[in-house]
């Protein structure tokens, strides 16, 4: 074997180096990656602010300024991770990365990225509250049914759903990688049937009041972080089991 043979100088392959490569593959355009969702959210904010400003100018008592617009961020995060599975993963596997490292690395990135979003949202919520809804009593960052609480719990309240939705989208992406469009449609139809069955049972048993009181009585951290984490765990484990036999 020649001294310049590339195989001869091979370096050890560590999990860390592989995960770092996966992170890099998903963040080559870091500015667009991190900035993109916030630019979109800023645009939504501007539109909502203009509308509520106009309402407050014309109507004395227009009620609470609830927008719910912050949920857009959930879907931006979700779609980003769907793309990670549909577009980035085939490229990653061509470069010799394993499914395990790719899925693990992307899940790790998701956890960090959504925590970052949760921290920024908490900070903006602080400003919103301090300025009495940006001076026009607009609830943009608050999810109105969640009462005031301490900062840590507020971060978890944002992080739990963001992380969960991201992992669910990642799992859907795993289904796409394994079974293609057909698999995604099957999952969607299955989901519709399950939700339909739950609705049917609740209606049949006249159990809607009990269902409603569950949401009211469950402590917010459990409802917004505890239960989502169960779904998150199911999504991440299920997604991995699906993707480990995926072809690209």
């Amino acid at each position: 074997m020649s001294a310049t043979t590339v195989a001869a100088a091979e370096q050890p392959v560590t999990t860390g180096s592989r995960l770092a490569a996966v992170l890099r593959l998903n963040t080559v355009d870091l500015r667009g990656r991190v900035g993109g969702p916030w630019v979109i959210l800023a645009a939504i904010f501007a539109v909502n602010f203009a509308i509520w400003w106009a309402i407050r100018v014309n109507v004395d008592d227009a009620g609470a300024g609830t927008t719910g617009a912050v949920s857009a961020l959930f879907f931006i995060v979700g779609s980003t991770y769907l793309i990670a599975m549909t577009q980035v993963m085939p490229f990653a596997l061509s470069l010799g990365l394993t499914r395990r490292h790719f899925y693990g690395g992307v899940s790790l990135l998701l956890a960090v990225e959504t925590l970052f979003h949760a921290l920024v949202l908490t900070a903006l919520l602080g400003i919103e509250r301090a300025t009495d809804g940006w001076g026009i009593r607009m609830d943009f960052f608050s999810m109105s049914f969640i009462p005031e609480q301490n900062v840590l719990l507020q971060v978890l309240t944002y992080w739990g759903p963001l992380l969960t939705i991201g992992l669910v989208f990642l799992a859907v992406g795993a289904v796409f990688r394994r079974w293609g469009q057909f698999g995604v449609w099957t999952v969607m139809i299955g989901l519709v049937l399950v939700l339909g069955a739950i609705t049917f049972v609740l209606t049949w048993q006249n159990a809607w009041p009990a269902f409603g009181s569950f949401f009211v009585e469950t402590p917010i951290p459990v409802l917004m972080f505890g239960y989502p984490m169960i779904l998150a765990a199911v999504a991440v484990v299920g997604g991995y089991l699906v993707v480990r036999r995926a072809r690209v």
Partner: peptide
């Protein structure tokens, strides 16, 4: 990973992520 890390597979149909 030990052996795959030493491979590179350039496919005819290799697509790059849209954001790239």
């Amino acid at each position: 990973a030990r052996v795959l890390a030493r491979t590179c597979f350039i496919r005819e149909s290799l697509k790059y992520p849209d954001a790239y």
